[in-house]
């Protein structure tokens, strides 16, 4: 039985059947590491993030990196043509990915990315939204909830004011954006389950 890794953070879904599980994992890890580093660099630039404790910085990044990457790479999911571009640059149709074993997570990612892209946000709005996604006081293992909560509130206020200024006639956009947060959580949970299954396999 042929194995596939249908994650667009991978260079390609094809897995060399001659490689050991460890090698496959190392190659995959090598391909997503730069994107994770980018998220850390992004976090460092969020005003106030570096003032949080080291423990809380790590906890927020551990819990939220996947969600930030989904927002950051939403444009890899081409809703109209039903295809996904992998980081290696190759495009794969949803049908092809389905035959490789992708399931509900891929469909849910498409739904999410379509709705997010339809909001037509600017790069600045997307960045501020990613900061709000990352700085969430209800992540597990946060030791100073008050500090994270205070930073989260500041970021949400800044996002609201930016959206209100840029879209004065579309007051629902801010609400729609906040409603994306639970959607991201559920994608994150589905993704963790798949990673676990992969690791166990």
């Amino acid at each position: 039985s042929r194995m596939y890794l249908v994650c667009p953070m991978n260079t390609s879904p094809q897995v060399d059947p001659h490689k050991s599980g460890q090698d496959v994992w190392e190659e995959f890890s090598h391909s997503f590491t730069p994107a994770v580093r980018e998220v850390v660099e992004f976090a460092k630039k969020i005003p106030g993030f570096r003032e949080l404790s080291q423990h809380d910085q790590v906890s927020l990044l551990k819990a939220g990196t996947f969600e930030v990457l989904v927002v950051r790479f939403a444009s890899l999911f081409h809703v109209k043509e039903r295809s996904v571009t992998f980081l290696g640059g190759q495009k794969y149709s949803v049908d092809a990915l389905r035959t490789m074993g992708s399931g509900d997570l891929l469909s849910s990612m498409f739904d999410f990315c379509e709705k997010l892209m339809n909001l037509g946000l600017s790069e600045e709005e997307m960045s501020l939204f990613m900061a709000v996604v990352l700085v969430s006081a209800d992540r597990s293992g946060i030791e100073n909830v008050n500090s994270v909560e205070a930073l989260q509130e500041t970021l949400i206020r800044a996002l609201r004011s930016l959206i209100t200024r840029n879209h004065p006639n579309e007051s629902a956009i801010f609400t729609k954006l906040l409603l994306k947060l639970p959607d991201l959580r559920s994608l994150n949970n589905m993704h963790s389950e798949q990673l676990l299954a992969f690791k166990v396999h």
Binding site: V36, Q54, Q57, V58, K62, T65, K199
Partner: peptide, 27 residues
Amino acid sequence: FNDPASNLGLEDIIRKALMGNLEERQE
């Protein structure tokens, strides 16, 4: 397996990427 981020090496990548400026803070 309760903490996929740690198991999958994500924590290590995050800590290394953060380390530079965390060391600055400690000085």
